[in-house]
Amino acid sequence: MNFDYSDDQKMLKDEARKFLDAKCTTKVVRGVLDDAGRHYDEALWRGVAEQGWLGAAIPEQYGGLGLGHVELCALAEELGRAVAPIPFASTVYFVAEALLLLGSEAQKERWLPKIAAGEVIGAFATSEGPGPVTSGNIRTTVANNRITGTKIPVTDGNIANLLIVLAKDGLYLVEGPVESEVLTTLDPTRSAARLTFANNEAERLGDEDGLSAMQQVFDRAAVLLAFEQLGGADRALEMARAYALDRQAFGRPIAGYQAIKHKLADIYVKNEIARSNAYYGAWALNAGAAELPLAAATARVAASEAYWFASKENIQTHGGIGFTWEADPQLHYRRSRQLSLVAGAPSTWRERLVTQLEQRNAA
């Protein structure tokens, strides 16, 4: 079985990299990082919409390109490599996927074309505080199609105009904006907010139990997030290698010293483990395979570990300069921390992985 990209998918990936190299430089990323009043790069968002990426996995009948999830994974990898400061993940991996999975025909026809065109920024609001989301800590309620409650933190919640919100009895679509408070986080290039719902209009999304529906969306998003993390981890390794070859110490490049060689080799090994698991997840997602929950958990755990390790060791390889504001390794460290907490912390996914393995072995 060939788990590599096809020639067409490689071409898509190459063109995406060229576009992002030109339109999403570190100057663009820092423009959002340095400006507390900017929560994403509007020009890049419009450019990505014009490229059709927002609708890559959305069927043509709903205004998308209808390419498939493997192509979306390829785009996610390049977006992660560029540390793109746009709400792509919230809108596409979560909201669009939830609509495709759970939405009625009317809901799909109304919202998916707008997502594909870049007219909608989405956010997926589930958490109400620290710790994993369980039935016992969901306090958001819906009565007479009106929703009341608070969600914190919600990635891109302050800029979203379409929210999917977890309430006690299920998932609901809520049109934004809603009352929000921007939160201070480690990665300001992806905003987060506290959202307060005070009898906002809400429309039921799907008929399933809320937690079950949420986990199905999380499984799909986890694979796509893993590719973003993989792209970032690969770029962090490239940065560390380039600096190690250029930086001189005691008359020779520091890349020639065993400690640096081992550091870079360790990053490479973790990245390749993450890649194999991410490819497994991409296959399961694209095929709609029964193994998706296991594949998603495996990809999520491996990619979170790889990106955090690569971004951390990239800073260490740069030495003292790596800790300065002017140096770029911080961009990947910040994003690695942000991505690891979206859709549940790594510890939650490790528990899910163990549970999936136990269920498989018991079958």
Rank of each mutant, 00 (worst) to 15 (best):
L75Q: 09
T148W: 08
G103R: 00
G320Y: 12
A117Q: 12
K151L: 10
A160I: 03
V154N: 00
D219V: 09
V301W: 02
P293E: 12
A244V: 02
E128A: 00
V28H: 00
I260F: 05
G66I: 08
F94Q: 13
E175R: 04
D169P: 10
R17Q: 15
G251C: 09
A240E: 00
A213F: 01
R17C: 05
A82M: 07
K10L: 13
A240V: 01
A274R: 15
G52C: 06
K13Y: 13
A297Q: 12
S212I: 13
A296W: 00
F218A: 08
G232N: 02
L163M: 10
Q338R: 10
N145I: 04
E175Q: 04
F88D: 03
D8G: 05
S347N: 09
Q338P: 04
L331M: 13
E326M: 12
T141N: 06
A295C: 13
E238K: 15
Q51K: 15
A222C: 11
V92E: 07
A106H: 09
C24F: 10
A96N: 06
W53L: 01
G176E: 01
T140F: 10
P329E: 05
L183E: 06
T126F: 05
G68K: 06
A236G: 06
P253L: 05
E105V: 07
L79W: 03
A233N: 00
L100V: 08
A98L: 10
N145E: 15
I267G: 06
I121C: 07
Q356G: 02
V301T: 15
L166R: 03
Q356D: 05
A198S: 14
G103N: 03
G210D: 00
T126H: 11
L285M: 08
T91E: 02
D156T: 02
P113I: 01
A49P: 07
Q330A: 09
A255W: 15
I159P: 00
A362C: 06
E15D: 14
Q356Y: 09
I138E: 07
V174I: 09
A297M: 08
K27P: 03
V174N: 06
Y268S: 15
A274F: 04
A16T: 12
L339T: 10
R46Y: 04
M214I: 05
G210L: 02
N199V: 05
N286L: 03
A240L: 07
E291Q: 14
